Simulated scan of single mutants.
Amino acid sequence: MTDVAVVILAGGEGRRIGGAKPLRQLGKRRLINWALDRAQCWSNVVAVAVRDFAQAPSVNAEIVQDDAVEGPFGGLAAGLKFVRTKGYPFLLTIPADMPFLPPDLLDRLRAAIEDFGCAIASSGGHAHPVCGLWRASTLEKVDDYVLSGGRSLKGFSALVGAIEVEWAAGQKDPFFNINSADDLAEAEKRIT
């Protein structure tokens, strides 16, 4: 896709897993590399959004710094600025801690977005706003949202108008995310 840039959200502290979550190994690769491999299937314009540049050393992508807003919303805001500088109308966000994202993520979100501000992945009845296709034009609403006290991706997606796209979760939810050592061990079982 020539009109979509991908930004990997990797700015969290990862306290539940002992820090440096994007650099944790799953199999023989770091979590950030799992995300990069998937992102590069969807676009040749890929960036990693981090709070601190030390969170993503030695990555084959541009690094952008999160806006001064706590949580993944800071990464989205930085990503929207990034996509605007590239002149692309769409931004796909994915997190660094979901190594099994479905290959059809971009295609299905793209098919659903229509006139909405964003299309958000969902599975098992749970929205995953970190996996979203966002119109670059939603950047215009970021400052007012932050000034109003908004900090969540869910709140921002509601503000800009969102549609959820459901995937079957089953036993192997493609949106399984790694937050703890137990989650990492579970993910290891899935790849062996």
Rank of each mutant, 00 (worst) to 15 (best):
A5T: 00
A10E: 03
A10W: 03
G11W: 03
E13K: 14
G14Y: 02
G14F: 05
G14A: 09
G19W: 01
K21R: 10
K28R: 14
R29H: 15
W34N: 02
W34H: 07
A35E: 07
D37R: 05
C41A: 14
C41K: 15
W42I: 01
V45A: 11
V46L: 05
V46N: 05
A49S: 08
A49Q: 11
R51A: 13
F53C: 11
A54I: 09
S58W: 12
V59Q: 01
I63D: 07
V64R: 05
D66A: 08
D67W: 10
V69R: 08
G74W: 01
G75R: 00
A77F: 06
A77R: 06
G79Q: 01
G79T: 06
F82T: 09
V83T: 09
T85R: 15
T85C: 12
G87Y: 05
P89N: 11
L91R: 01
P95T: 09
P95Y: 00
D97P: 11
P99A: 14
P102E: 00
D104P: 09
D104M: 07
L105Y: 00
L105G: 04
L105K: 03
D107M: 10
D107V: 08
R110I: 12
A111F: 06
A112G: 14
I113P: 13
E114F: 11
D115Y: 15
D115M: 10
S122R: 09
P129E: 08
V130G: 14
V130R: 14
V130Q: 14
W134K: 01
T138K: 04
K141N: 11
K141F: 15
V142T: 03
D143H: 05
Y145N: 07
V146P: 01
S148R: 13
G150E: 09
G150N: 10
K154Y: 10
G155K: 00
G161A: 08
I163V: 11
E164H: 10
A169T: 02
G170E: 03
K172W: 11
D173T: 06
N177S: 13
N177D: 09
N179D: 08
A181P: 09
A187L: 06
A187Q: 03
K189Q: 06
T192V: 13
